[in-house]
C-alpha cells in the first residue's frame, strides 16, 4: 500500500512534479496495479536465477577507432531549447 506521502517521495525520485489533484488521482490507481502485481508473491522462485537478457550473449566490444557516428556541433546543438555561445544552457544549480 503506498500512501500519498510515498507518492510524493516517488515523484521526487522520478523528478515528476505532482499537483494535489494528481496525487489524489494516482494514489489509488498505483495501488490497484501494485495489488495486482502482488500475485507474484504466490510463485515460489527459490533458487531461480533472474533473466536479465534472453540471449546468452557476452563480450560484445567495439574497436578503439575514432570517427564513427560523431555529429557536428551544429547538429548537436540543433535541438537545444536554450543555448549560449557553443554551450547547452541549463538553469542555475541552487
Amino acid at each position: 500500500m503506498i500512501t500519498k506521502k510515498d507518492l510524493e517521495h516517488i515523484g521526487w525520485l522520478a523528478r515528476l512534479e505532482l499537483s494535489d489533484d494528481e496525487k489524489e488521482k494516482y494514489t489509488p490507481k498505483l495501488n490497484s496495479v501494485l495489488d495486482y502485481f502482488n500475485e507474484l508473491d504466490e510463485v515460489d522462485t527459490e533458487g531461480v536465477e533472474p533473466t536479465y537478457h534472453v540471449l546468452q550473449l557476452y563480450n560484445v566490444f567495439r574497436d578503439d577507432e575514432p570517427g564513427i557516428g560523431s555529429i557536428t556541433q551544429e547538429e548537436a546543438l540543433s535541438n537545444a531549447p536554450k543555448k549560449q555561445d557553443e554551450f547547452f544552457k541549463a538553469p542555475r544549480m541552487m
Binding site: 557516428g69 560523431s70 556541433q73 557553443e86 554551450f87 547547452f88
Partner: peptide, 9 residues
C-alpha cells in the same frame, strides 16, 4: 570548442 566531439550516444 565545446560540444564539438559528440554523437548520439
Amino acid at each position: 570548442p565545446p560540444n564539438s566531439h559528440v554523437c548520439p550516444v
